[in-house]
């Protein structure tokens, strides 16, 4: 598969199979992704990894903390909660990515953007090996108990969780708007 095909073939994978994911492979792919991002300093990002059944369960508890603790959550039947939990605990590996805010907005934005670029490469590198991922930024998980649980530091920005695993079937792609329709040529200042 060439690069263009790879970029177009990658899909977000929301349903993976039970094959285990090796931690060594995740580290190797993160290193490869970082290598494709020379502007990204080691100090600009950090990964917290959950790759065992115990840590996955722990993570899912943090993710659902807001729901279970809220008044509304108390009304959710235990069975439904179990289904929600199982959906995530059945995913073999979770890569939580954080970027460093630095001392000003510009540094924070530069780090964030570079880290996202790295994560896109990581998704593509994973796809080459048959690994599927879904980038999760659901607002419902983003609350104090979650951030405390994953150990985010004061100067860090939450970029997302990549839930990853091998999969049996990739979903069909959803069409993109042609770039021509989002393209303008600046003709210079008219004033």
């Amino acid at each position: 598969m060439n690069l263009s095909e790879l970029i177009m073939a990658r899909r977000s994978i929301r349903k993976c199979n039970a094959l285990p994911v090796e931690q060594e492979l995740v580290i190797e792919l993160l290193r490869d992704a970082a290598r494709l991002q020379p502007a990204l300093d080691a100090g600009a990002w950090r990964v917290v990894y959950a790759g065992t059944p115990e840590s996955s369960k722990q993570l899912v508890d943090y993710m659902l903390a807001q729901i279970t603790q809220s008044k509304l959550g108390k009304l959710i039947p235990g069975k439904l909660l179990d289904v929600m939990k199982r959906r995530f605990t059945e995913i073999p590996a979770h890569v939580i990515v954080l970027s460093a805010q630095g001392t000003d907005r510009l540094t924070s934005d530069r780090n964030f953007a570079a880290v996202c670029g790295m994560m896109q490469s990581f998704q593509l590198l994973g796809w080459e090996r048959g690994l599927g991922m879904i980038w999760d930024t659901e607002s419902i998980i983003q609350n104090e108990s979650f951030f405390k649980g994953i150990g985010i530091r004061e100067d860090e920005r939450f970029v997302g969780i990549l839930h990853l695993g091998y999969f049996d079937k990739a979903p069909r792609g959803r069409k993109r708007t042609p770039a021509e329709r989002k393209w303008t040529i600046w003709e210079g200042s008219t004033i």
Partner: peptide
Amino acid sequence: EKALQEPQLRFELL
């Protein structure tokens, strides 16, 4: 030089 270096990774377990 940089390409040949192993990138530093801050990778921690939950």
